[in-house]
Amino acid sequence: MAENYQAINWNNLEDEIDKATWEKLTEQFWLDTRIPISNDLADWRTLTEADKDVVAKVFGGLTLLDTLQSQDGMSSLKQDIRTQHEEAVLNNIEFMESVHAKSYSSIFSTLNTPAEIDEIFAWTNSNEILQYKAEKINHYYQEGTSLQKKVASVFLETFLFYSGFYTPLYWLGHNKLPNVAEIIKLILRDESVHGTYIGYKFQLGFNELSEEEQADFQTWVYDLLYDLYENEEKYTHLLYDQVGWTEEVLTFLRYNANKALMNLGFDPLFPDTAEDVNPVVMNGISTSTSNHDFFSQVGNGYLLGNVEAMDDNDYLFRFDDEDEE
């Protein structure tokens, strides 16, 4: 006889972190349709063709990676849950990754013509360097062990997205495209929780391995990171050589690669720190948002708080400060 189907009981937790993460994510809920991207059109028209090309391609790449995360990543991780509540959290993450992917289309529909949008997606869906990292991550989603899947997810959330995030943060630091940057800051805030939560779940499983198994697995983790970074160097040159930002973006990538390793409980690999990152970009991260009400268009019955300022520590969600906004 089959076992009875089990109703999820949030009053009986196996892991308090599941509840803390659920509450953090639901507090942060947002939708792209409530952000007035069209207010950035005047800034957009001042950018050079090379600058516009970079913006288009980085957002195309981000759309692809968020699509991968929403369509394959979370469903893969849900095969290896430790608690019912973890699956609920992953369902939330899966939905928000779809929101992230859709957000870039909202940006495209505002800033680009239909023909330009077609070109962006044609490039995204055929570029070999971009496809390599998507296929590499998806390989582990489809064929990897429980721990390998989590590593792939954390590397995607906390490392691979950042070659794209650099661009809107740079422009925000130069007081341009602030509403586009609002979306990126909202996404960053989500990803900081996603990466840290999945990294936490990874550490629970990793700590159950023998010392020899841990050593072997850690070697695999660093090998994968090296492989992804080598590909990311090519991607960064492809995107940023035309505007002269390549070396600065690579520094930013190495900095975030270290944060991905920290999410997994491993030591940083690269010497780069926040002090090495372009201060304009770090200022773009930490600059407080404008005070407009994203939700005023639908009346007072649907009001959410403004996005709070982010700082360097917000890249890593900490489970000991769930009550902080």
Rank of each mutant, 00 (worst) to 15 (best):
E3A: 15
N11C: 09
E16R: 04
A20F: 10
E23L: 11
L25P: 01
I35R: 02
I35H: 03
V54A: 05
A56D: 00
K57S: 03
G60L: 08
L62Q: 13
T67R: 00
L68P: 01
D72P: 01
G73R: 08
I81H: 03
N91I: 06
E97V: 10
A101C: 06
K102T: 09
F108Q: 04
A115S: 07
F121D: 02
S126F: 00
E128K: 14
I129C: 02
I129H: 12
L130K: 12
Q131N: 09
Y132D: 11
K133W: 07
A134N: 12
N138H: 12
N138P: 01
E143V: 08
T145Q: 13
T145N: 10
S146Y: 15
Q148N: 14
V151S: 15
V154D: 07
L156W: 02
L156Q: 11
Y166W: 15
T167E: 05
W171V: 00
H174T: 09
T196F: 04
G199L: 13
F202I: 14
L209I: 01
S210Y: 07
S210I: 05
E212D: 12
E213Y: 04
E213Q: 15
W220N: 11
L228T: 12
Y235K: 09
T236Y: 03
L238P: 02
V243Q: 06
E247P: 03
L250D: 04
T251L: 08
L253K: 04
N258L: 06
L261T: 10
G265R: 00
F270V: 06
F270R: 05
F270K: 07
D272Y: 04
T273R: 01
N278Q: 06
P279D: 08
T287M: 11
T287W: 01
N291W: 00
D293N: 15
Q297D: 14
Q297W: 11
G299F: 13
G305Y: 08
A309N: 14
M310H: 13
M310W: 10
D311E: 07
D323Q: 10
